[in-house]
Structure formats: structure tokens, C-alpha cells
Design a protein around this nucleic acid. Structure first.
Lengths: 251, 251
DNA sequence: CGGAACGTTGAGCATAATCAACGACTGTGG
DNA sequence: CCACAGTCGTTGATTATGCTCAACGTTCCG
């Protein structure tokens, strides 16, 4: 994955400005699920003053662990990964971000994690210090961010249980089921199809396994007719939901 | 470990009350590090209205995963563990709580994790809904809790890296170093002594290993003269900080 | 066409889990 | 006082799970 320079606030991008609500906010597809959902039009105009819309492309690093924390953002479209890494290159994905999620390290001078775009997409980006100032004036926004942080903490803790205590098969099966619950499409026959948003290697980094082990577990689930793949390696169909669930919730 | 009923708010305990600041708050040893540090005396009097001091004893379960979330608390003294468990009994410690830390699941009707006392201690306990109400009136308290949640999230993510990507020896060495940074005592000869607050079994549950593996890693570090134990199995002395650090930060 | 990225499969191995035994220490009750 | 059970930690033997190394097929692009 090509590594590119992190977000710079001086790069060319459109300004979201004006005393009234910009049209891109009024039309924004994620307004209900993001921070902005907690704000009145007047409040949103306030925040949009300091924000910029910004395009990101697959593989681009949004922020590097250790760099100064200068900006934060809402994900408007696309997907990103948050990773922790060791000096020798071992990597663990500690979070996945989708539209409506918040990116950045608030109240800290340094980023602690690296954030990378998994797909092309758009961010609504804010200078960190100005954004923190806006939080003082808008307690409803702070409350929403607080709740998002608590949800992220619960997610992380659930993932810790997987990483520390589950077998490879349980982790892979759980990954498919989690995705199905989030983004799965139900089919007439009762089957569910799930698009895997990340590569085998990224699944491995997410689950604390190797690429080969992830691949073998998929193969094993295919051999048991629990899942099947259609049109490539990323479109997974759950043929036997009950047996998949039985792997994840043992006994 | 004996399992006892979870926190009941009707149990006998002293009331922290009065329009003025109660003496137990004025004298509280953790006031600077806990929520209360962000409050003026007048604000603190407000919060103390709804709080109770409560004693907890080693092994006692403060709240069970799945139970309704009725209360939250500050840790005044002692230590607690936050655990996630699977149906078949596998357990992962996802957080350790010490004086000044916050206990409880805010903005959620159900607890998602089990919290258990590792030692005898004291909590400052609040009804959850009333506490949430107090947050509306005291943005500085909410801000402090928000920062604590973000710190807990960073901790959890660092732990995810250990669980997913580090060897048993790296995890055990890292555990000792983390404790040393938190609570270690420096000695004249440059050595550092660390009291391990939890048993081998709990260390295993924290690091995602078995008791035997944890024990073998301690033995290995002892054999290399990197650490030594004094007066029992819980007082660890770091004899060679550099080599311990080299294990944790490889290459 | 050549190369790169991605995914799968196989063989062998290493790490940590499992199963088992044992010593040290603690508190209990005869 | 001692016998006893219980908890905790250590150590040994064996096993299994998942990792490493390697080869190969496919797809996509330049």
C-alpha cells in the first residue's frame, strides 16, 4: 500500500463557509448519524465555519502515530483503518471507520495511532484546536462525541476478548457475522450476503492472525457449506447462518 | 473467587449529603485525580448530594455484564478489574481500575462488562440516571469524563496490539514495564521494584495467555537475571531495565 | 507480454495450550 | 497441636494451533 503524506490543512480544498448553513451541510448524507445530527441549523453553521471538505484516496495516510495532532474530521464517505504498529512492522488494526464516524485524537498534542484510507472517500475536516473550542460552546456536540467514544471503547473491549481468547475459526466467523449485522443484505431464500470491505491481509491485521490462517479458515467454512463466495473473493454469502452463529457462540 | 451479589443502591451505607461540601469530599485523597478535581466546592456539593460512599471487598462483583446499568462510581481506594467473558467461561480482562478511575456504563441501559473488586476498597457511588443529569449541569465534569474515556480507549487499543501481535515474553515484559511506569519504586542502586497487584491467573487473563505460560515467562526472566522476586511472588524487582526494555521494544 | 498484488494451498516447525504432578503456604477444625 | 483441604505458583511431558516458508494460480494494469 503506497504511503502518502499526512493531511495538511493548507492543501487545496473547498471551504465550507458562510454565516448561513452551507448547501453541502443541508444536503449531507450523513448528517443524522454524525456529530452534525445533534445540531440545529444555526449551530451547524457555526461549526461549518471552521471545516473543510476534503477528498481522500485509497492507501492515503490521514495521520501518522507520533505526529502532532493538528486536525480531526468526520467521515462523510469511504472507509478508514486505525492501526497500532510495532517498530519491526507488526501491525494491528484497532478500529475501522465508516461514514458518520469521527477521526482524530482530541485533547492531545500527538496522534497515538495511524489512520489510513481503505477506499477513496470524503472527510469533513477541522483544525483540532478550533474544533475543541467549538465543543466548549456546543455541549450537545460534545455529548455526541462522548457517546461515540464510549461506543468505540466497548467495541475495542469486545475485540480484546476475540484477540485474547478466541480461536482463529471463531475470530473469522465472528468477523463475518459482525459485518453481516452492520452491512449485510438479506436475500429471499433467507441467505445473507456480505461484502468484505477489506483484503485478506487487512482482515488478518484486524483479527491478529496471518493472511494464510485467514484464508484457510475461509476455505474451511466453504468446505462445510457454511459460506460461499460469488464474483471474486470479497462477496461472501452466508449459506448456514445457524452453524456460523454456533461457531461464534460456542457450547 | 467467591461471587457475591452486585451493587444494590438500597444497601446500608453512609450518605454524602448537605448543602455544603461534606468533610469526606474536602479530605478525599483522590480529589485531584478523579472527576471531583474539575469542580469547585459548590459544584462538588451538588454532586455529593446524590453520591454514597460504599465499601467493597476482594472478589465482590460490582456489576454483571447484561444486568441493567443502575449506578456508576469513582474508585476512592482499592483496585478492580473489568472483564469480558464467553459463554464457556473464557475470560479476558479488558481494563484495570485504580483510585481516581470511573466505573460504569453511562448512557446505556445495560452493563456490557463485568466489574469485580481485586482488593478491598471504597467507591463513591451514584445512581446512573441522576449522575447523567448532573453531567448536563456540569460541563467540566463531562469534559473530564470524556478525557478519561479517550484515555481508556487509547489504553485498550495499545492492549489490542499486545493481544494480537506480541509474543508471550513481550506481553509479560511489557506488563512489568507498564506497572513500573505507573507504580514502580526507584531504589538507590538504580533498580526498580514493582508490586504486582494481581495473581498469575489474573495476569494471564489480562495478557490473553494461560497461567502456566505466564509463570514460565517469569521463570525465564529470572533465569536471565532481568528480574527477581522478593518476599513472595508479588514483589518483583527489575534488575536489568535495559534488557527488559529491549524485549518490549524489539530490534 | 511482464510484473505486481492478491489469494490459496502445502510442508514443516515453533509457540503456547493442555494435562498432570508437586511444593509452599493458609486457614480450618478435630 | 496436627491433619486436612484449598489456593496459588512452578515445572515437566505432550499436543495442537497457528506461523513460517515456499510454490502456484488469478486478476488487473502498464
Amino acid at each position: 500500500m503506497a504511503q502518502q503524506p499526512a493531511l495538511s490543512l493548507v492543501e487545496k480544498s473547498d471551504r465550507i463557509a458562510g454565516a448561513t448553513l452551507p448547501s453541502r451541510c443541508a444536503q449531507c448524507g450523513i448528517r443524522e448519524t454524525s456529530l452534525c445530527g445533534s445540531m440545529s441549523d444555526a449551530e451547524l453553521a457555526d461549526l461549518s465555519e471552521i471545516g473543510r471538505r476534503r477528498k481522500i484516496s485509497r492507501g492515503q495516510v490521514i495521520s501518522w502515530a507520533g505526529d502532532p495532532s493538528r486536525s480531526c474530521a468526520n467521515v462523510v464517505s469511504g472507509a478508514l483503518k486505525v492501526t497500532a504498529t510495532l517498530a519491526d512492522g507488526r501491525e494491528q488494526i484497532v478500529g475501522l471507520l465508516f461514514p458518520g464516524d469521527f477521526v482524530g485524537q482530541l485533547f492531545s498534542d500527538d496522534e497515538t495511532m495511524t489512520v489510513t484510507a481503505l477506499t477513496n472517500g470524503d472527510l469533513c475536516s477541522y483544525p483540532r484546536v478550533a474544533f475543541e473550542g467549538a465543543l466548549d460552546a456546543h455541549p450537545k456536540v460534545e455529548r455526541m462525541l462522548f457517546k461515540k467514544a464510549l461506543a468505540a471503547l466497548n467495541d475495542a473491549r469486545g475485540q480484546m476478548l476475540s484477540l485474547g481468547r478466541k480461536s482463529a475459526q471463531e475470530r473469522v466467523a465472528g468477523f463475518i457475522l459482525d459485518l453481516a449485522a452492520r452491512t449485510g443484505q438479506r436475500h429471499p431464500a433467507g441467505e445473507v450476503s456480505v461484502h468484505l470491505p477489506i483484503s485478506r491481509g487487512e482482515i488478518a491485521d484486524f483479527l491478529g492472525l496471518t493472511i494464510e490462517t485467514v484464508s484457510r479458515q475461509f476455505t474451511r467454512l466453504k468446505a462445510q457449506n457454511i459460506i460461499a463466495f460469488a464474483r471474486g473473493d470479497r462477496d461472501c454469502r452466508i449459506l448456514n447462518f445457524a452453524r456460523l452463529d454456533a461457531i461464534v457462540n460456542p457450547e
